[in-house]
């Protein structure tokens, strides 16, 4: 399934780019994120707890950044194992465009799930995935704006 969105963020592009690479900010913004650890420049490990329909799962996964072109954007690719709940994998192309002193963030994401989440939650996956993506970028915008304001 594919999702996309666009957000106008009240912060200059450099700060948005920095935040996109700030593991502490990402950790706060990823819905259900319990752990996020940097293992290399471009690789992180994550633990994320999610509930899709009747299935609750804790995913252990690896997230990598690819196609990094500061400060215009990157691709973020992840894959997580949720035990018997199944697996989730996906990626998002994130693009930043300067808009005066604001920044427009757009993303195009793809996600695929397998196992019990697909079997029991199929009707809910698309809406849940769209909601989660939206929540992440909203959280991200809010966290960034708050940080800019407090700085």
């Amino acid at each position: 399934m594919e999702m996309s969105g666009e957000y106008s963020i009240d912060a200059p592009i450099a700060e948005v780019w920095a935040a996109l690479n700030d593991i502490e900010i990402l950790k706060v913004c990823i819905p259900g994120c319990e752990e996020l650890e940097q293992v290399s420049e471009t690789e992180m490990t994550a633990k994320v707890a999610l509930k899709i329909g009747p299935v609750k799962a804790r995913f252990n996964g690896v997230v990598t950044f690819e196609n990094i072109t500061p400060p215009e954007g990157y691709s973020i690719v992840g894959e997580g194992q949720g035990g018997v709940a199944g697996f989730a994998k996906g990626g998002a192309d994130v693009r930043l465009v300067e808009d005066g002193d604001k920044t427009v963030l757009t993303y195009q994401a793809k996600a695929q799930v397998g196992g019990k989440i697909a079997q029991l939650g199929s009707r809910l996956i698309k809406s849940t995935a769209a909601k989660l993506a939206d929540k992440f970028f909203k959280n991200f915008r809010d966290a960034l704006v708050a940080e800019v304001a407090s700085a």
């Binding site: 695929q112 799930v113 397998g114 196992g115 697909a118 079997q119 029991l120 199929s122 009707r123």
Partner: peptide
Amino acid sequence: YDDSGQLLSASYMD
């Protein structure tokens, strides 16, 4: 089945 071979009709909900 979806294209990735996931069984989407795997309960009496679907």
